[in-house]
Simulated assay, not measured.
Amino acid sequence: MAYEHTKYLANEIGQRIAGSENERLAEQYIFNQFKQMGFETEVQEFTYVRRGAEFKSSNVIAYKPGKSKQQIIVGAHYDSVSVGKGVDDNASGVGVMLETAKVLEKIKTPYSIVFIAFGAEEVGLQGSNYYASKMTEAEIANTISMINLDSLAVGDHMYVHGSAGEDGFLRDQALAIAAKKKIDLQINPGLNPAYPAGTTGDWSDHAPFKRLGIPYAYFEATNWEIGEQDGYDQTADHGGIWHTSNDTLEFIEATYPGRIQKHLTAYSTVLTDLLKFANKTSTAK
């Protein structure tokens, strides 16, 4: 399912530049998928200013009630840049989110889940910043973690990052799930002192929630052992794929046969089990 959603967003819709008609088409596709699953779904419209011009975008929000009213936010941005087709960055994250939502459709999870497809991430995290800015103090206190899915398809290694200390509990639980299922999920090894082991930078949709004091987990595929050791160079052979003309299904599948299917399956498996068994009993808010 994740692969088919990724393929549709990238090949049927194509580039999904923030504020464009194609971004709107992607919003409608994602909204319809969540509605078909029976989730309470809404579109959160917002505007932003860039280079003196005003643009419109939106977040798609789907709510799945759980055993507890405390919630986990799962997010992935659906816009892309103006080169390539945004397969890796970030149709892949949306695909994994939609597959996981479908698998969990009839399963009672420990926590309620808010699935969010963020608009306009590529132009300054506009969607996630807007959503976070509208959260009330009660909603912030009620959110035990935010899980971010960004660029999962093509990097040499699969990673999960997280908050420091005890707030990294979902990262640690994801690692345990992966180990049990023999999935090679790693952490940033901390070779670059600017990014301690197990953490990452504030360049994706987890950042606005981190600033609110909400713990995060962040799934991505890249290679933290090459280049500047900051995760930007995703592959040893071709460097970064995101934000380049190589971010297409044709290039990824020809150059790395089977990698996208392996990654999407692995991430969907880990994320599904993580949401089924998430546990923060010792530090619950």
Score class of each variant (00 low, 15 high):
111 Y>Q: 00
117 A>Y: 00
117 A>C: 02
121 E>V: 00
121 E>I: 03
121 E>Q: 11
124 G>P: 07
128 S>K: 09
129 N>M: 12
129 N>P: 07
132 A>C: 13
133 S>A: 14
135 M>F: 03
138 A>H: 11
143 T>N: 01
146 M>F: 14
147 I>Y: 01
148 N>M: 08
150 D>P: 04
152 L>R: 04
153 A>R: 04
156 D>R: 00
156 D>F: 13
158 M>D: 03
163 S>H: 12
164 A>V: 12
166 E>I: 03
167 D>Y: 10
167 D>H: 12
169 F>N: 11
171 R>N: 05
173 Q>T: 07
177 I>H: 08
178 A>Y: 04
178 A>D: 00
181 K>Q: 02
182 K>M: 13
187 I>R: 02
189 P>R: 08
190 G>V: 08
190 G>S: 13
190 G>F: 09
191 L>W: 04
194 A>S: 14
207 A>E: 07
209 F>W: 03
212 L>Y: 00
217 A>R: 07
217 A>C: 02
219 F>I: 11
219 F>P: 10
220 E>V: 10
221 A>L: 04
222 T>R: 10
224 W>E: 05
225 E>L: 13
226 I>E: 05
227 G>C: 12
229 Q>D: 06
231 G>L: 05
232 Y>I: 15
232 Y>Q: 14
238 H>P: 11
238 H>F: 15
240 G>R: 15
241 I>R: 09
